[in-house]
Simulated assay, not measured.
Amino acid sequence: MIDEGSIRHAGSSEVSVAGIEAAARLFPVATVQNRYNLSDRGSEDVLEYCEHHGIGFIPWYPLAAGLLAQSDSPLQAAARRRQAASGQTALAWLLRRSPVMLPIPGTARVAHLEQNVGAAGITLSDEEFRAIDQAV
């Protein structure tokens, strides 16, 4: 489809590094969409590969926070300091985690969409980022 001009870019979903490399032999991989969030970082090697090769990384299920959603967690503490929702703060952590990160949290409500977009305006301190990162 790229060769035909039907599409300009293509990506892969739920792939390993080997899968990205195999796909790259057929087409330039623009993005990878794998499950990745604060609680599930099983695709860390894939994210690092994407960073090294300039490939966009789209985490699916990006708002899963697991134990970090509890009231005494570093995620909640950072959210309270900013008067932000925990979901916003989880998205802020993802955005800070990597320059190739492109989270697309799903929502059915405009208010929730606006809240998610607000995550781009949250800058976690180095200490907050590390505390959240190490809490899981």
Rank of each mutant, 00 (worst) to 15 (best):
V46H: 00
A92F: 01
Q76H: 15
L94W: 03
E21G: 09
I132K: 00
A84M: 08
V29F: 03
R80W: 10
T123F: 09
R130H: 14
G42K: 13
I20G: 01
S86M: 15
D126S: 09
L113G: 07
A84N: 08
F57N: 00
G56H: 02
E114P: 11
R96C: 03
Q33C: 06
G121M: 09
D72Y: 10
A10M: 06
N34C: 08
S43D: 09
M1T: 14
R41T: 12
A131K: 07
E127C: 12
G118R: 02
E14N: 15
R41K: 09
R25Y: 09
P105H: 05
A131H: 08
L67A: 14
P103H: 08
Q83W: 09
A79P: 05
P62L: 02
G121D: 13
D3R: 15
T89S: 10
V32F: 01
E114Y: 10
G121Q: 10
C50F: 05
P74F: 02
E48H: 12
Q76M: 15
N34Y: 04
I20A: 03
N37I: 03
A18G: 13
M101P: 00
G42H: 12
I122H: 00
I132T: 01
L124K: 00
Q83F: 12
M1K: 15
H9V: 15
F57W: 01
V32Q: 00
C50N: 05
A77L: 10
I7E: 04
A30Y: 08
E114C: 13
E4D: 14
R130I: 08
R81L: 13
Q33M: 13
S43P: 07
Q70L: 14
R109K: 15
S13R: 11
G5V: 04
I55S: 00
A23Y: 04
H112D: 10
P105G: 10
Q88D: 07
G118W: 02
D72H: 11
F27H: 12
A111C: 12
H112L: 13
P103W: 07
S73Y: 01
L94P: 07
A119I: 07
V110H: 12
